[in-house]
Design a protein around this nucleic acid. Structure first.
Lengths: 265, 265
DNA sequence: TAGATTGTTAATCGATTAACAATC
DNA sequence: TAGATTGTTAATCGATTAACAATC
């Protein structure tokens, strides 16, 4: 890093905060939808609503990119699509390889949101010889022996790892050794990579555990408010009753009132 | 929410910061691995290394849970596993439904990391009549018409949405209407839910776009340092040359020096 | 001009981190 | 006792947000 700072770019150089970078794709998606409906301009309020953030945050985020709006009017949709795409590096083509073609690898290979955003699946790679040659999402699966040559030939700098946990670090090392500098890791492993290589991790189990934490606390909150038994809706089907089982709670003393959406009787 | 604060719990009640909650599953995974190797105790330094965080952060995180370590010794692995599991709500059983059984839904259904962490796939649900009755991961797929009764009967409070974008909001509404209060959303949609319902979003395309942003900046950095052409490793395979393609860069003017890993000629 | 909406400021809040006293 | 390591403090940093002047 340019300064003494360590690992993870955080905010360096041009200085777009990480939190902002992580939201740019959200804005881009919302803008693309507007563009498809031929909406010419949009206000920060509208766009923020569509992206699921608040408008002050959106304007602050955009201010890091430049002054692309018009006071009193809003933002030109097409222009913003272009500027954000450019900022994210989506105006160029990114060949990616997916390593590990199980259910998840196949799901990603079939994922439509790729091509439209500049990502091109250059190859699917698997260690199982029985997989090689098979077509997945119209692409032939190749053997992991070819990994290095595939990366070199296609100038791949982004790799997606969807192998079992046991194979992930080894695959990662080979990808990095072959020149890959960004890795999207779906395996439940902490990958170790040299300086200069970015790793992002998607972990289903972790997401579920975070949900469980909040779910548990909701149940505890209900109990401590003395509303009902421990988080179990009406046992029988058919009745609309149990449906409320925690959903749409009348939150505290707010203006929302205490009227349950559905009354048990 | 109990106080005036809006949406997203952030830190409320017992007061474990969100950032800490999000790391607890990481610690738990590392601890589980140690437990399987029958390691009795672990220091914050070791555990932090295994989880990929720094040790000060880990100790701070644990301090929110209580004082579970022993000065001069470290943490008892089994005890910590239990405490974190309990904190996350994993000592109870969480029935989940997965709606949308395409490649991704099937991948999740087959995912092994579920059962071991207290999550049980109560049902797989799909809108396609041709899917109903099929076995996926040993579970019969059921038709979306049954969604409400499945949720009621099994006391499901966590739903996973793996449908196409177009169906996601509708599925979400039905899940919430039936009593689900936590949703893991894999569709590229901003779901709108009533107060009290938690949504977490996993978005492959967004992760890739964030990587592309950093990848692009690496290339720009290289260029501005005048090292070589725009981010393309040596075209031919075989040589060790192109491999470096950006990896392990000599970072800036630091003590690391300006020696490129590989010279173009 | 009047109304609308951006871009920016400044206050606040939450998260990270180094350092070290407490204590095993 | 000496060495090790936790739990906590306090400083710092980054992110969020409301508010509003600038300006279309």
């Amino acid at each position: 890093m340019a300064t003494g700072r360590n690992h993870r770019p955080a905010t360096r150089s041009r200085g777009i905060p990480e939190a902002t970078v992580a939201r740019l794709p959200l804005y881009l998606r919302a803008l693309t939808a507007l563009s498809e409906r031929s909406v010419p301009t949009v206000s920060s309020e509208e766009l923020a609503g569509a992206a699921g953030v608040n408008s002050a945050k959106l304007r602050k985020d955009f201010s890091y990119l430049g002054s692309y709006g018009t006071r009193g009017v809003g933002y030109d949709v097409e222009y913003l699509v272009y500027q954000i795409s450019r900022e994210l590096g989506l105006t160029q083509d990114w060949p990616v390889v997916i390593v590990g073609i199980g259910n998840l690898g196949a799901a990603l290979a079939n994922y439509g949101g790729f091509a439209s955003r500049g990502f091109r699946v250059a190859a699917l790679i698997d260690a199982d010889p029985k997989m090689t040659g098979k077509q997945v999402a119209g692409i032939g699966v190749r053997h992991v022996d070819e990994l290095e040559s595939i990366v070199h030939t296609n100038g791949v700098s982004i790799g997606v790892i969807t192998t079992p946990a046991g194979a992930a670090q080894q695959v990662c090392d080979r990808l990095v050794g072959a020149g890959v500098t960004s890795i999207l890791n779906f395996s439940p492993t902490v990958l170790s990579v040299p300086e200069g290589v970015d790793v992002r991790k998607v972990d289903l189990s972790i997401e579920l555990q975070i949900l469980a934490f909040h779910e548990q606390r909701k149940a505890a909150d209900e109990l401590s408010r003395g509303l009902r038994g421990p988080e179990r809706p009406a046992p029988a089907a058919g009745g609309t009753g149990g449906g409320a089982g925690g959903a749409r709670r009348g939150e505290g003393p707010g203006p929302d009132g205490d009227i349950p959406a559905v009354m048990p009787a």
